[in-house]
Structure formats: C-alpha cells, structure tokens
C-alpha cells in the first residue's frame, strides 16, 4: 500500500516533524513517498530525499502553496491520492488546516493526531485533552491521518530517494494571502527542543516574563513556552502556548514556572521525560505530574537556580 507523507517545512529547510511522520508511515507500509509542496523548495526536497526508507520525493510549487493556503494544499494532494492508500500529515497548524479538506473531498473520515499505529487500519489518538486514549478502526479504503510528531521517533538519514515534480493544482482562487508576522528567535524550536522552560500567569507582565523566563531558557539552551493565561495577558506571543489548543511538546526536560497545571496545559506537556515545577502553592496540580517540585516564590527561586546552574557548568 503506497503511503504519502506531507513534508513540514518553511520553503527553506525541512522540519523534523517530517522524519517523525515518516516513522509513523513506515509502520503502515514499506512504500513511503514524501510530498514537498511550497515555493522554491529544491533544497527542502533534497533534504527529504535523504530520509531512510523514503522511495520518492514529489515536489509541487506555486505561490499559494508557498503560503501554505489550505485550499491550495488540498487541491494539490487530492489528485495525488489516486495513487496512494493513505496520506500522513504532521499535526501542525498547516497540517490540521488542510488535511480535513482532503478527507471531505475523498468522502473519508479524517483521523486526527494519532499517537500510535496499531495496524494499517487501526490507530490510537488522545481525546478529551489527553485524559482518554481512543483506539479507532477505519473502514475507509483511503486514509487521511494527522500525526502527533512528539509520539514518534525521527526516521534516520541515509536514504537516496528520487525527486520528481508533481502538478501544483489550481491554487486558492477565493483566498488571498495578506501578511505574516512570524516570531523570530535564535532559540530552539518549541516543538522540537530538548529542554523547554515555560512561564505562567505568575509572571504578571511581559517585562517580567522576559526578565525571568528567557534568561533561564538561554542558560539551559532551551525553547520558551507559556501557559494560555500568560499568552492571553500578552506576556508571551501566541505561538509559545503549550497545551490542548497550543503546541504539544515532549522534551527531555520541561520546567514550568508559575504555572498551576490545568488539564488543558498538562495535555501539551505531560509526555515530557522529566518535569520540574516551581510554584509557591504546594497544592498546585502541576506538582501531581512533576518529577521534581520546588515550592517557592519564583522571584527568589529562579535567580538561585541560575546561580546553581553556573556552579555545575563551571
């Protein structure tokens, strides 16, 4: 059964969500191709061709694909599905946006954010903010699946797939791209980082968030995350949000500073290997999932932590 993997990239470089999704695809089938849809994606396609286990890389290019407009991506993928039994899409904001459109056009039920492949028709996915896991079997001949990347290991390098061009499709005649405001940062990407430091409502202001959370993250070489409360209050940008409706992360180390641990937040980080919580309320629910809890005011605890990190590193 040939399976298509939709590549996650920003037109310049491939994101490792792609390699993780390839791993999920290889659990379904040995015949895995990757689609790189975008604009000016030659370098991205070359990276994708190196993923071990990939047969063929398809490239499709247009302006609308470059802006990752849902109608354009769907119009590109739908005709390709004549040759594939399943398409696996990383569950990013791009993937979640267009994959259901493909499913509707094929008259199949999309399967959202799988975390396990049981067999080629049966999958496990979290529901209710991860408080339950559902095992679902699909009767559809063609499957449209989004994959939670943190649940799969990245496929290794070492492949040498062929690269060929595919039709771009009709674009998005009823949608116009207006603008994009992307947060620039030299830190590791939140979804892929080995260490994440997140701040919550306790920070009280954007200045305090920058003064407390960001230096700690820099010291640890970590990405920065935030609770919804911190984002809503404007202490941190929206793409920092970790949780049921934000990003799902599973780093080696997750440090939650001044975050209470609401179920919606836990949904995004409880699969981290080691969780550290700093909170002045000993009864905060975050301590129920934390491996190491420090009951303290962050105002004193974080500077002490920074100093202690200097000592071990020195």
């Amino acid at each position: 059964m040939p399976v298509l993997v939709f590549a996650d990239h920003d037109n310049r470089s491939l994101k490792d969500n792609t390699q993780k999704t390839v791993t999920a695809a290889l659990a379904l089938s040995g015949e895995v191709d990757v689609l790189v849809a975008g604009k000016g994606v030659t370098a991205v396609a070359a990276e994708a061709a190196k993923i071990a286990g990939v047969r063929k890389v398809l490239t499709a290019e247009s302006d609308a694909l470059g802006h990752q407009i849902a109608e354009a991506l769907a119009a590109c993928v739908i005709p390709l599905m004549a040759s594939y039994d399943a398409v696996l899409v990383p569950a990013t904001s791009v993937g979640k946006n267009f994959a259901p459109r493909v499913a509707a056009a094929l008259d199949v039920a999309p399967i959202s954010e799988i975390i396990e492949v049981v067999d080629p028709s049966t999958f496990v996915r979290p529901i209710y903010a991860g408080n339950a896991l559902e095992t679902v079997a699909s009767v559809d001949a063609k499957k449209v699946i989004t994959v939670r990347p943190t649940a799969f290991k990245a496929a290794a390098e070492g492949g040498a797939a062929t690269i060929e061009a595919a039709p771009a499709g009709v674009g998005a005649p009823k949608t116009r791209f207006v603008a994009e405001e992307l947060v620039k940062s030299d830190r590791p990407e939140l979804a892929a980082a080995k260490i994440v430091v997140s701040g919550g409502r306790a920070m009280g202001s954007a200045e305090e968030f920058q003064k407390v959370i960001e230096p700690l993250a820099d010291k640890l070489g970590a990405a920065v995350g935030a609770s919804r409360a911190a984002v809503d209050a404007g202490y941190a940008p929206n793409d920092y949000q970790v949780g049921q409706t934000g990003k799902v992360v599973a780093p080696q180390l997750y440090v939650a500073v001044g975050i209470s641990g609401a179920i919606q937040h836990l949904a995004g980080m409880k699969d981290s290997k080691v969780i550290v919580a700093i909170n002045k309320d000993a009864d905060a629910p975050i301590f129920q999932v934390a491996d190491y809890g420090l009951v303290a005011d962050y105002k004193t605890a974080v500077p002490e932590l920074m100093a202690a990190l200097d000592t071990v590193k020195a």
Partner: peptide, 10 residues
C-alpha cells in the same frame, strides 16, 4: 494563529 506566529488572509 499559526505555529510560527500570525497569518492574515482575505
């Protein structure tokens, strides 16, 4: 709200 920040469409 997209993964990298914000996108505006018409």
């Amino acid at each position: 709200e997209v993964d990298g920040g914000l996108q505006t469409l018409e």
